[in-house]
Design a protein around this nucleic acid. Structure first.
Length: 105
DNA sequence: CTAATGACATTTG
DNA sequence: ACAAATGCCATTA
């Protein structure tokens, strides 16, 4: 397993996101050194490790929730439980709740 | 290998 | 500001 699939890297980064914070597909892709936001979302949809990965903490770069395999409504509820305030499917204090990945590990 | 798909992002009207 | 159209990259058939 020297080189995991692109999706596996996304899950790894996602697990690094602390509870109560959120990240965007674009940031993940950028952290991986790519521009495949699309592929990131596609990878999340597969979500082979559903409860193991906080996929519900990933939102659109616009600050909106985006989509969710179990339903966007469910995702909103989960984020609210994390302590995140949401209004009209939009995250409040998004820039404050936004978790950015470190450049060097 | 080629074509189609998708939990997105950016630009244009 | 919002909606629609276009572009993007990796995965799947």
């Amino acid at each position: 397993m020297k080189k995991q699939s692109f999706s596996s890297k996304c899950y790894t980064l996602l697990k690094k996101v602390p509870r109560g914070k959120v990240t965007t597909y674009k940031e993940i892709a950028k952290a991986l050194g790519t521009r495949a936001w699309r592929a990131v979302g596609t990878a999340m949809n597969k979500n082979p490790k559903a409860p193991k990965i906080p996929c519900h903490r990933v939102v659109l770069s616009s600050g909106k929730l985006g989509g969710f395999a179990k339903g966007a409504e469910k995702k909103e509820e989960l984020l609210k439980k994390e302590g995140i305030k949401i209004s009209n499917k939009k995250i409040i204090n998004f820039d404050k709740l936004f978790f950015k990945f470190p450049k060097n590990t």
